[in-house]
Every structure is written in C-alpha cells, then in structure tokens.
C-alpha cells in the first residue's frame, strides 16, 4: 500500500479517531477473547473435575486421584456395554452411509440442473430439521408396520443423520477435482470404473474420510434419534450418560466425559493431519 494513501498516524491524529480505533480493537479483542476462553474452559473444567477424589462435582476439587476412572473401568459394566454398542452402531451407520452418500455425490456434485440441486438440499435436510421429529416419525412408522425395535432400526435412523455430512464433504472435494484429469484418463482408454478407482477415488479420499469421521462422531453422540429407536435392551452411551447426569450426578459421568474428550482430541488431531477436517467443516 503506498504510504500517501495511508491515513497519517502520529501527532496529527485527532484524539477522537485514536479513541475510535482503540475502542474498536478493544471490543474485538475482549469479545473474541471471551469467545476463545468459552470454547476451551468448559472442557478443561470437566477434565480437572474428573480427577477429583471426592464424591461430588465440586470445583475446584478438594484433592486429586484417578479413582473415578478406576470405578468406570472396574465396576461400571453398563457404561462400558453402552459405549461398545455406540461404537458398533456408529461404525455400521458410517459404513452404510459412506457407500450411499459417496455414490450420490458422484451423481450430483457436477450437475447444475434443478432436480439435482433439489435432491441435494433434500439429502442435506436432516442437518437443519429437528431430528427428534424424525426419530419419533421413524418410531411410529416401525410401530404401524409391526416392526419391533432392534439395533437395525437404530442404524437406519443413524444413517439418515450421517449421510448429509459425507455427501457435503465428498461433493466439495469432487467439485475441486480438475475435470481435465478425468478427461485425459478417459481419452487414454480407461473405463469409467477404472477411472474412478485410480483417479477420482484417491483424489477425493480426504474428503470422504473427513465426512466419515464427522458422521461417526455425530452418530456416536446422537440422542434425538436413539431416544426413540433403541429397544429396551440396547442403551447407547449418550443416553446412558444423560440418565446418569439427570438422576444422580455420579462422578463417573465426569470420568466417562474425560475418556470421550481425550479420544476426541487424539482422533481429531490425527484426522486433521490425515484428512484436514477443519477445511471440510467450513
């Protein structure tokens, strides 16, 4: 920027404009700082609380010990079982929705026709709609069809909320793909399936992986659908934790949260490295 165009700083600057600049910077810094603190502090507080040696969720804790992690591991078979079920449901739902959503992304991402745009926004709609309504709707449909609830019905509900994430990230990656690459592969005689396997898939893999990871976490965390679609014998982890926090405020909930936070941070950092999830969330 040529210096003649810069407003002149220093002695000539009036007191009013200095105050003006200062107040803007201060407002931005203070509010942004509060936002940053708010993003981090709750997680830190839960982590610290989970190492308490007391029976209550007092903060700061009177003393520290890993006792609640031991209690979680040794005498909470119901929490461990719920966690394993959640992992299983999330894994299956993610796998199924990855296949469905990647296929749909291949079909829709480059199309500008009205039907394709409409279909795309329909597929994205579970992200905007209250999914609780969808959970209830699915429950009523299964009831009317005399179809009892099972892990399968749970997976069906979860696929509906997982697919949009994978569709979004895969479509975005496909749109960034240079069509010349596909063209040259085709003109060199490669068949469509071969082009897909050797050119398209490797290039959009980070997008698919990022979407699958976000979908997995969304399914693992889902309450709105599971609330209606899990049968009496299968309770998923977030609902188990919801019951614990709602009824007894058991400190084991803090330990379970600590495990989840640690797992999220580790997986999140690994996936950021491999697939750049933050790029795909914007």
């Amino acid at each position: 920027m040529p210096s003649v165009l810069q407003p002149r700083v220093g002695a000539k600057e009036s007191r009013g404009s200095l105050l003006e600049r200062w107040s803007f910077g201060a407002a931005l810094g203070v509010l942004g700082g509060i936002a940053m603190l708010l993003l981090i502090a709750p997680t830190v507080i839960v982590l610290v609380t989970s190492f308490t040696n007391a029976y209550s969720l007092k903060f700061p804790p009177p003393g520290y010990s890993p006792r609640w992690y031991a209690a979680l591991w040794n005498d909470s078979p119901e929490i461990v079982a719920a966690a394993l079920l959640s992992l299983k449901i999330a894994a299956i739902a993610t796998a199924v929705s990855t296949v469905l959503a990647v296929a749909a992304a291949l079909a829709l991402s480059r199309r500008r026709e009205a039907w394709a745009r409409l279909l795309d926004s329909i597929f994205m709609s579970p992200l905007m709609l209250p999914t609780l309504a969808l959970g209830l709707a699915l429950l009523m449909m299964f009831n009317l069809m005399n179809q009892g609830l099972s892990p399968t019905t749970l997976v069906i509900g979860h696929v509906a909320i997982c697919a949009p994430y994978i569709l979004r990230t895969t479509s975005a990656s496909l749109m960034q793909l240079d069509p010349v690459l596909l063209e040259s592969a085709r003109s060199l005689g490669a068949r469509p399936v071969f082009v897909f396997r050797t050119v398209t898939l490797p290039l959009v893999m980070p997008g698919i992986a990022a979407g699958a990871f976000i979908a997995f976490m969304a399914s693992f965390d889902n309450v709105a659908i599971s609330l209606f679609l899990s049968d009496a014998r299968s309770e998923v982890l977030p609902i188990r934790m919801w019951h614990i926090i709602e009824s007894s405020l058991d400190v084991r909930a803090a330990a379970a949260s600590g495990v989840l936070i640690a797992a999220t941070i580790v997986l999140g950092l690994v996936m950021e490295r491999l697939a750049g999830i933050s790029r795909h969330l914007r």
Partner: peptide
C-alpha cells in the same frame, strides 16, 4: 466434534 452430552455436562 466432542459429544454434546459431555459439553452439556461441563
């Protein structure tokens, strides 16, 4: 990415 139940618990 962290569970909403965990963040609510916080």
């Amino acid at each position: 990415l962290t569970s909403a139940v965990v963040r609510t618990f916080a």
